Computed example of a mutant assay.
Amino acid sequence: MESLDRVDQRILALLQEDGRLTGAEIGRRVGLSQPAASARILRMERAGVIAGYRAVVDPAAVGLNIRAVIRLRTTHAQLSAAMHLAAQTADVTSTLRVTGEDCLIFDVHCVDAARLERVVDSLARFGPVTTALVLREYPCKPLTPAASPAP
């Protein structure tokens, strides 16, 4: 997609703050008509800049009281199997493949410590794991598109 101008960037920031804003409200906030704002949003959706919309669920409100980050150090031969297991484990909510000593980092939400233990043990068959309990999550900053190179 061609570079995003400041209006596109403002629209992205607004949608990251509240994905339920209407085209009319976004247009009002950025100084465009509703059709013009909606056309920009559609263009960014079609280009893959806006990848989707979703509800953000409070884990504690649905009984998932323990959150942990699990780091796994494994071999290249075991990597695919470990990622497959993580994909099949409902408690694993995201997986990152990383460089460094660890190979994979899993974000895990569990109902209790016993369930966390089972998740850790299932991943540990692929190599050493390190587990850290999450005490608090701080708000994420919205993504800001990379600046276009100067002409």
Rank of each mutant, 00 (worst) to 15 (best):
R71V: 02
A68F: 14
V7S: 05
S80D: 12
P139D: 13
S94F: 09
A77Q: 15
L116K: 00
R73L: 14
G52P: 00
A47K: 04
R6E: 13
I26C: 01
I105M: 04
V119Y: 02
E117G: 10
R40F: 02
A13W: 07
T99S: 15
A82I: 06
L12G: 01
I41R: 03
T75E: 13
V129R: 01
H109N: 14
T93C: 08
I11M: 04
Q16H: 08
L4I: 09
A150F: 03
T93R: 14
D102T: 12
R6G: 06
R118K: 13
L104V: 13
I41A: 07
Q34I: 15
A13F: 09
R43D: 02
T93K: 11
R125I: 12
D8C: 07
I66R: 05
V120F: 00
L14G: 03
L123D: 09
M44R: 08
R125S: 09
A13T: 13
F106S: 00
S80A: 14
G19N: 03
V92I: 15
D58P: 00
E45V: 15
A37Y: 06
L85V: 05
P142E: 03
T95Y: 00
A39F: 08
A55S: 14
R67A: 15
S80G: 12
M83C: 05
R125N: 05
R54W: 08
L123S: 07
M83E: 09
L116G: 02
R118Q: 11
D102V: 12
D91W: 10
D5N: 02
L79R: 10
A61E: 15
R6K: 03
E117N: 07
F126S: 01
A86M: 01
S38T: 13
A47G: 01
S122M: 09
I70M: 14
A60L: 15
T22K: 04
D18A: 03
A87S: 10
